[in-house]
């Protein structure tokens, strides 16, 4: 199905947030996730289902002031 990941269109086969992260190779790194503007904790990624057109945000540590 087609979803949006960090603002870019992305085709994913997986049906969950955890599955999509694995598909995109984000299994080892430290990331935080939100789906359609709502926070999805690490512990809920397996159970959070994806639907066509969903907006997934995958954030990483970054420099900040």
């Amino acid at each position: 199905m087609k979803i949006e990941v960090n603002g870019a269109p992305q085709e994913v086969a997986a049906g969950t947030v955890a599955g999509a992260l694995a598909e995109m190779g984000w299994t080892t790194g430290r990331v935080a996730t939100a789906l359609n503007g709502e926070f999805v904790p690490k512990s809920a990624r397996e159970a959070t289902m994806l639907r066509e057109g969903d907006r997934l945000e995958v954030l990483a540590p970054m420099q900040g002031g």
């Binding site: 603002g7 790194g29 990483a60 900040g64």
Partner: peptide, 19 residues
């Protein structure tokens, strides 16, 4: 140290290791 979070673009993990 103050830090932020931004869309993952491949640099984040190395930065985190330094911190």
């Amino acid at each position: 140290a103050t830090v932020s979070l931004r869309r993952e673009a491949g640099q984040g993990q190395a930065f985190w290791d330094i911190i």
